[in-house]
Nucleic acid binder design. Structure first.
Lengths: 128, 128
DNA sequence: ATACTATTATTAAATATGTAATAAATTAAA
DNA sequence: TTTAATTTATTACATATTTAATAATAGTAT
């Protein structure tokens, strides 16, 4: 597995915008994020720049404007985060994790049923 | 829900030791962690101190030695972390999260079966 | 009672993060 | 072509984290 750059919480918000809208330029990113956050455009530009430095984003110039594309894919980033979360907090044991969510009572009956369905169609081999 | 102190990754390693062994003193904590990590005792003592400052640990003196007890409970900390992980990365949707784990192919057939069992006994009401 | 030493407290310095402000540069307009 | 405006680059500063080193203190042994 690749070594993904470390992406901070604020930077992750930027990544989400780029993943969803790439190719996307600075103005478009700041346009979206100034509406969903309290960040100033300057702050957002700093975050974008850091992501470029970290190798999470690449850009090409469209005249004066930079247009960004992700270098880190959302899927692989999510996978890495999920993996490390599971390891860190549940020793890598998914059953322990699920039990914890159940115990915390954050899951509605609907959600539980939904999980059942998912697992039932996640054919683990032959038997149905 | 209470407002838990922010516990860093390194600090969390200390918390795990205390959760498992409390009441436990500085020497015992450093004894364990110098074996499982590369940290110097000084570093570990710094981490312990920060956890006290943050209100994650309390201590009482046994002559010259400090004996620690957690002020933050493991369960509530885990719950908080699980909650925020689910929100941040899967929009709070547990089915999305499970699908992601399945897609990543990190789950063995055994684990999948285990999850089924858990959900089946997690009676979500009346029907069995 | 005093010195030693084990333990705790304070200080340190580098990197990361949050949150910008100011400076530089380049393109578009006059 | 010079200027103005837009966009990017550099600098800033506070807090958090990692990873200790050094200083102070208080029990313990002599």
């Amino acid at each position: 597995m690749k070594n993904l750059p470390q992406i901070s919480e604020a930077e992750y918000e930027v990544m989400k915008i780029v993943w969803k809208n790439a190719p996307i330029n600075t103005n478009e990113i700041t346009g979206i994020l100034t509406q969903t956050t309290e960040w100033s455009p300057k702050t957002i530009q700093t975050l974008i720049k850091r992501l470029v430095n970290k190798g999470a984003l690449s850009y090409e110039k469209d005249s004066r404007v930079f247009v960004y594309t992700p270098l880190v894919q959302e899927e692989e980033y999510l996978e890495q985060q999920s993996d490390s979360f599971l390891k860190r907090y549940f020793n890598g044991n998914i059953a322990t994790m699920l039990n914890s969510y159940l115990k915390n009572d954050v899951l509605s009956n609907n959600e539980i049923a939904e999980l059942r369905d998912i697992l039932n169609s996640a054919s683990d081999g032959e038997e149905k």
